[in-house]
Design a protein around this nucleic acid. Structure first.
Lengths: 146, 146
DNA sequence: TACAATTACATTGTATACAATTTATTTTCA
DNA sequence: TGAAAATAAATTGTATACAATGTAATTGTA
């Protein structure tokens, strides 16, 4: 056991997490292409399908992204006609993002995506459940710090 | 149980994986700043510390990145003096990336990074081990397809 | 109630990611 | 052996990410 063993790629949790995330996103791409969505746009739309209307701040807290990423992304979703953007008259600092009719219609087409992708994941239901628990435990640990 | 439940953010493995990966990388940043490395440059250097010399193709297979990402990244590492880049005389198509003296010296300073970051991860040793196993099982499932 | 502090979003600059294409080199095989 | 196929990097174009900064609106408070 050398003092450098901790520096081996295979001994760090961060690397498989990083690689796994990227590879899984790649498996979404062919399905999302049909919906004219990128992966980040897709998780944004998932929030919109649940919430109908959110501020940029709320959205960012839910999907862990800041305005630097969200502002241009939401403009693209607006151009595609999936959401609308307008200032909150009660507080002009806030931008209200709302699901449009086209955006709502997109939900129908998206329902099969998670199932299709899950076929590519070589984990059993139980293993996927375990992973899920561990990931959320880790995520909660991060947010607690701030 | 609606037909749309699969589309909820909380029901998809991909989202916590994506979010967790990003948040964990963020926790590396302050430590890596001291080494003048970004996260991707850091995992590249981890490969170099293990292998001393690799081709771009080998490197890409190890860390799941293509030449479109690696070419500019390796040029930056070369500018910092951590690696050298030269064509393989036996096969001029290949680019040999080699660890420089400065790059080797950097390894000393990097040894404490994994331990520091692991303190921020709210998982027990055992949980981290379980997550590790599941992530690599998933990763292997991906590569098998191709 | 002015005005400093805070908040929310937008902008800027740097660094990935990756699909698609191009270029240069090497291999294959008709 | 010589052109076609394959291979390895580099390049191009698009889309994130995020730190740092800027701007406008709102809040808190002396």
């Amino acid at each position: 056991m050398s003092e450098f063993d901790s520096l081996k790629l295979e001994n760090q949790l961060c690397f498989p997490l990083y690689a796994c995330s990227k590879e899984l996103v790649k498996h979404y791409t062919p399905f999302l292409n049909k919906l004219d969505l990128t992966y980040t746009q897709y998780i944004t739309m998932m929030v919109m399908w649940e919430r109908e209307q959110v501020t940029v701040k709320e959205l960012g807290e839910i999907i862990y992204l800041d305005s630097g990423t969200l502002t241009p992304l939401l403009k693209k979703l607006e151009n595609k006609g999936y959401v609308t953007r307008e200032r909150n008259p009660q507080d002009e600092r806030e931008l209200l993002v709302s699901l449009s009719e086209n955006g709502r219609a997109l939900k129908q087409q998206a329902t099969k995506v998670p199932l299709e992708v899950s076929k590519c994941v070589g984990l059993s239901q139980q293993e996927a459940g375990e992973m899920y628990q561990l990931l959320y435990k880790m995520l909660k640990g991060f947010t607690r710090e701030k």
